[in-house]
Design a protein around this nucleic acid. Sequence first.
DNA 1: CTCCCGATAT
DNA 2: ATATCAGGAG
Length: 210
Amino acid sequence: MAVTKHTKQILARLDEAYGTEQICYLNHENAWQLLMATILSAQCTDARVNIVTKDLFVKYDSLEKFANADVKELEEDIRSTGFYRNKAKNMIACARRIIDEFGGEVPSSLDDLTSLAGVGRKTANVIRGNIFHDPSIVVDTHVKRISKRLGLTKHEDPYQIELDLMKELPKDHWISYNMQIITFGRQICIARSPKCEECFLADLCKVKGK
DNA sequence: CTCCCGATAT
DNA sequence: ATATCAGGAG
């Protein structure tokens, strides 16, 4: 499967602008912390998640603490991330199942990860990429919006977008693409008001200025 | 498809 | 007032 010149140009400019180093914007010290942080990041900015987890991971300093947490208390501890009832319930169930079914270790396969409460394809791929360094494409709102703007996919469904990107992007760019697009999406191709005047991909964009 | 749901920019 | 933010489950 040949990579189109259009795609090569995009990747070359992203590499030049942001490098290819693997960076995670969710603060964490281990696998279960990243898992909990990623569950919290659903429909919430990473900046907000980092504020919450700063205290959260001191109070809950192990999976066992989450497994035995009081739901109401955990709800208040994570309230500002939104969807706090679902998230608190999922975090507790998730911690219990990792302890009971996976010997206390965060599993590495997509199927095992998505079998956990509150863990969908996006969260699972964050863990696979950042913890286990398995090539994976995380389709979040930035990747979705910008991949469409750049003409790398026409789909709305995140899984279909993931398949399109896996076909179009060389495997060694999968992880860096995610980091680059998130950075790009926050600095330039902002959802509410994209800065097309200062965008280094404007000439390759399908919907420039719209 | 609907519901979960607070913080922030416009 | 409205859209959007590193989504997932029923």
